[in-house]
Simulated assay, not measured.
Amino acid sequence: MLGNLVTGCSVLAPAGMLTELSTGLGVTIRTAGLLITFGAIVLCVGSPVTAWLTSRIERRVLLTMTLLVLALTNAASAIAPDYESLLITRLVMLAVGVLYTPQAAGTAALIVPAQKRGSTIAYVFLGWSLAAAIGLPLITFIASRYGFRATYAAIALTGFASFVFLWWRMPGGLRGAPVDLRTWVDLGRNPMIILLLSITTLQMSGQFVVFTFMGPLLAKLTGASPDAIGIVFALYGIFGFVGIVIATRIVDSWGAWKTSLLFTGLLLAGVAGWAVSAGAYVLMAGSVALWGLGFASTNSMQQVRLVGAAPAFASASVSLNTSVLYIGQAIGSAVGGLLFAREWLYSAGYVATVFVALALAVVIATRPRRVTRAAAAE
């Protein structure tokens, strides 16, 4: 979970300090936003490739070395002399860091009994909620006062601590099922897997139309200060944490589909609320809190559903989920950047709402079929 906190902060960091990156590196806010867009492209390509290349590596070695690389590349980002150097460092960081989240989920599935798998994967994913609840507000706070370099240094220190703790506590000898070409073919022929992956893509595309530029959008639409922007990020993360705690508690009894339906509905309500209330800080902040309830919970439920749909290929399917998650980030941040550059600030929320509404429609379409007693007997 702590490793996911580091991974989440590494991925999300630019969103919390776009203005400071723009000022410190002498580039436009839209150019600074490309750190997220290009990074997402590397992540979406890298996830299935690295899952294939590393499937035979012992999990303790794989996860701890990934965290060490994240720590070192965040340290290198703190001393990057210009935008180009920072971009290259970030691409290297994410090309390796893409390993962590799907492999952590797959490893958790190896450690616990099947009946605890859903709640355990959701718990491991709490790290991403903490990255938003604690990490993003701290990133905004530190960057607004001490600059983006101090922020990267803080993430590097956290990454190194996570590396040490995981190496100390994680059991050795854990290995997942090897991933080969046939694995991807089998997953590609599974209609449920394809539909679940489309949900992730649509959810993330919609969110990142707004989320990538949330700070500058708040500043332009409401005149919010850096501290006021940090409060909104905190609400997003805190309610994300609350949402995933609730999801962790109910998923084993409700089932992953009902839990996913609930939190995707909350996600849609929050994003639509942002669109309708654009320009009113208090209402936008309240909408972000509602949005936050759904953002991490929906993705953790996606992982639970993917593991349940093909348990033998959990690491591969979760890697694909991570890949399409970052495809969604790339699509959303690119669309959001285009809207921001053209000053279509109010349109962003409505475009995001359309994406998330489509995701909810697909969630409804993937409702599990009831198995009758007669069919079960056969």
Rank of each mutant, 00 (worst) to 15 (best):
V11C: 05
L12H: 08
A13D: 02
G16A: 07
T19L: 11
T23C: 02
G24A: 01
G24N: 03
G26D: 09
R30D: 08
T31H: 10
A32H: 09
L34W: 12
L34D: 14
I41M: 15
I41E: 10
V42A: 15
G46C: 07
S47E: 08
S47M: 15
S47K: 02
V49G: 05
S55F: 03
R60W: 08
V61N: 08
A71G: 15
L72E: 03
A75W: 01
S77A: 15
A78D: 06
E84T: 14
T89I: 15
G97L: 04
V98C: 11
Y100K: 07
T101D: 06
A105V: 10
L110K: 14
P113V: 00
R117S: 13
G118E: 03
G118Q: 03
G118R: 03
Y123L: 15
V124H: 10
V124T: 12
F125A: 11
L126D: 03
A131L: 12
A132T: 14
I134K: 09
G135D: 02
F141V: 13
I142N: 07
A143G: 11
S144K: 03
Y146G: 01
T151N: 08
T151M: 15
Y152T: 01
L157R: 09
G159S: 02
F160K: 07
W168L: 11
W168R: 13
M170Y: 06
M170N: 06
D180A: 04
T183N: 07
T183Y: 08
W184P: 00
D186N: 08
M192G: 05
L197E: 05
Q203I: 13
M204F: 13
Q207A: 15
V209F: 14
F211K: 00
F211L: 14
T212Q: 13
P216K: 11
L217C: 03
L218H: 00
K220C: 01
G223H: 15
A224H: 04
D227K: 13
G230W: 02
F233K: 03
F233W: 11
L235N: 01
G237T: 00
G237Y: 01
G243N: 06
I244C: 05
I246W: 14
T248W: 00
T248C: 06
R249V: 13
S253K: 06
W254T: 04
G255D: 07
K258F: 04
L262R: 05
G265H: 10
L266C: 12
L268M: 12
A269F: 12
V271W: 02
W274N: 07
V276R: 06
L283H: 10
G286P: 07
G294L: 04
A296S: 11
S297I: 01
N299I: 14
S300E: 10
M301S: 09
Q302P: 00
R305S: 13
R305M: 14
G308S: 13
A309G: 10
F313D: 13
A314P: 03
S315Q: 15
S317P: 00
V318S: 14
V324N: 00
V324I: 12
G332T: 03
S333V: 00
V335A: 14
F340Q: 10
E343H: 14
L345E: 04
V351E: 08
T353I: 04
F355M: 11
V356M: 11
A357N: 05
A361W: 06
A361K: 07
R367H: 09
P368S: 06
R370T: 08
R373I: 09
R373V: 14
E378P: 02
